[in-house]
């Protein structure tokens, strides 16, 4: 059972990021989420999502999904290694296993059902 992301359905509203962070912090914030709206390329209208799971980082780009195994690097001696993984110190997704009423919060709260549970 896994979280599936349809990046083209996503409307970049950040609901997932908010509720994931709530799940970890018990308040409204954006600090601790393991699912993050990638929105740093606003002028280019390029947005997607990053989801950190225990072993992998899922990069949901509009052009397709990329799954990267955490811990692997292409060239460890290279200073700026393009395959080094972001979000390493955030906790991996636990599918909100302690929240029986909702299941994964991001799935429950996505207003456009871009995030589903397989």
């Amino acid at each position: 059972m896994g979280i599936q992301i349809n990046a083209l359905k996503c409307n970049n509203c950040m609901a997932c990021e908010m509720v994931c962070s709530y799940h970890r912090d018990d308040g409204f914030a954006f600090l601790s989420a393991c699912i993050v709206s990638y929105r740093a390329k606003e002028k280019k209208d390029y947005f997607g999502m990053l989801l950190k799971e225990e072993d992998v980082l899922i990069v949901a780009r509009p052009e397709g999904i990329e799954i990267n195994k955490i811990g692997e690097e292409a060239d460890p001696d290279k200073e700026a290694d393009a395959s080094a993984k972001p979000m390493l110190l955030r906790e991996g997704c636990d599918r909100c296993e302690d929240m029986d009423d909702y299941g994964p919060m991001c799935v429950a709260f996505c207003p456009v059902d871009a995030i589903t549970l397989d």
């Binding site: 740093a40 460890p76 001696d77 700026a80 972001p86």
Partner: peptide, 11 residues
Amino acid sequence: GSLEFLPIQWL
């Protein structure tokens, strides 16, 4: 916070 998402590390 903005560096967090960049694919980079330093030895």
